[in-house]
């Protein structure tokens, strides 16, 4: 099943062609469904949907690489990125993670998405991919200057719902 309609895929591809500079990795943590049926609780399949969506996105540009990690099989990787909820997408600049060491890799992935990035969040994901590829932000110089005042780790969590 395709998530992206052909017209949408064409627009996204055009944007990638025009704006992507460097490689981007979408490090994706997905817990496979258990197949257990729990009465009163729908087992969501957001993980598989997230993977399918990201693979569609990655097909639109050679610059985008998707790596899927099962946190049950590789818990160390999940804890390195501080990922405790799934599905999770860590957006990283660069093609490979290992070359510069885990600490640097961790620092490069400062934007994460939890849950299926559908609706408006899909646009946010695309913006994040472009920013990571260009290693720049579209914040105004004034905002960037103000943010220089932050010298200790800060965690921003934006709660959203798909629209």
């Amino acid at each position: 099943m395709a998530f992206l309609k052909p017209a949408v895929a064409a627009r996204v591809k055009q944007r990638f062609d025009e704006e992507l500079v460097g490689d981007v990795r979408l490090l994706t943590f997905i817990q496979p469904t258990t197949g257990l049926f729990v009465p009163g609780r729908a087992e969501t399949d957001n993980g598989r949907q997230t993977e399918a969506l990201l693979r569609e996105v990655a097909e639109l540009s050679d610059r985008i690489h998707v790596e899927v990690v099962n946190p049950r099989e590789d818990p160390a990787r999940a804890s390195l990125h501080g990922v405790e909820r799934f599905p999770a997408i860590v957006v990283q600049s660069g093609e490979t993670e290992g070359a510069t060491g885990s600490q640097a890799a961790e620092e490069r992935g400062r934007v994460r998405f939890f849950g299926l990035p559908s609706g408006y969040e899909f646009m946010t994901l695309l913006d994040t991919v472009v920013n990571a590829s260009r290693q720049e932000t579209r914040l105004s110089p004034a905002s960037v200057g103000l943010l220089d005042a932050i010298i200790e780790p800060v965690h921003l969590q934006v709660f959203v719902t798909p629209t």
Binding site: R110, F113, E121, V144, E152, V154, L156, Q157, V160
Partner: peptide, 12 residues
């Protein structure tokens, strides 16, 4: 991305 001290999460 403007400041490496900041980690930003988008949570559904």
């Amino acid at each position: 991305m403007a400041n490496t001290n900041v980690r930003a999460d988008v949570i559904s």
